[in-house]
């Protein structure tokens, strides 16, 4: 398996995630799509790290996972609060903070 395959898979995953963030209304799905984008990047990091026999990419992947876990915790907590208040998980409904 050449590095091209890894990069291609990472690009496909990233695009799926990005499109999901842009087109879906459900906050839960958006969070999942964000995870998908993060993991696509992780995949690219790990692949290149292995290619260059350099551990930096591997380390950064770990950092990304830690940050992602924290982000999900906070994100889901906010989501729960909004859902309890408004009985909806749609991000378009939560649009009061504007001009």
């Amino acid at each position: 398996m050449s590095p091209t395959h890894f990069v291609a898979l990472a690009v496909i995953l990233f695009v799926i995630g990005a499109v999901g963030v842009l087109v879906r209304r459900n906050a839960l799905v958006i969070l999942m799509c964000v995870e998908l984008m993060l993991n696509a990047v992780n995949l690219a990091f790990v692949a290149f790290a292995r290619l260059h026999a350099n551990l930096d990419g591997q380390v950064i992947a770990f950092f990304v996972m830690v940050v992602a876990a924290a982000e999900v915790v906070v994100g889901l907590a906010i989501l729960m609060a909004i859902f309890r208040a408004r009985r909806s998980a749609s991000v378009d409904d939560a649009s009061l903070l504007k001009y």
């Binding site: 963030v21 842009l22 087109v23 649009s95």
Partner: peptide
């Protein structure tokens, strides 16, 4: 310019993208 701040998360995401 203020009108750009719509409050829709997805439009912010789009502009970031």
């Amino acid at each position: 310019m203020r009108r750009v701040q719509t409050g829709f998360v997805r439009s912010y995401a789009l502009s970031m993208f």
